[in-house]
Write a protein that binds this DNA or RNA. Sequence first.
DNA 1: GCCAACGTTGGC
DNA 2: GCCAACGTTGGC
Length: 137
Amino acid sequence: MAYWLMKSEPDEFGWEDLIARQEAEWDGVRNHQASNNLKQMVVGDQAFFYHSRQGLEIVGIMEIVEKASPDTTDDSGKWVSVRVKPLRPLDNPVSLKKIKSDTLLNTMVVARHSRLSVTPVTPDEWKRILSLASDQK
DNA sequence: GCCAACGTTGGC
DNA sequence: GCCAACGTTGGC
């Protein structure tokens, strides 16, 4: 099973919107690198939901429930989307600031390529973030 | 709101 | 097929 991180602006589509809908098409990805990551996803993969622009933090965990297929919002037929469902929120959101200041996490793709909206996460990074998310402060 | 870092477009 | 100009993303 692979891990991912997917960005969305909460103004457009936030964690609360996913909770309300329970399942959603992750559409609108118009970047080849991000699209290639979507194509590599398989059902059962898990992904962090990250709030970009406003929030700048990982707020929840999703599961991929349907692999990549043509994006319904794309007329050109070039781009794909996957379907996701929420699993659970993080007890404590993990901010980009925290990621960048953590020696285990500051090499994460999301920290190095800020404009990539779908990025892979290694198992070690995944575990570390879950650990930070459950720390009681 | 600004702008750096990208990605894309189009003239040549 | 190069690259200047332009548009977009997203952290700050």
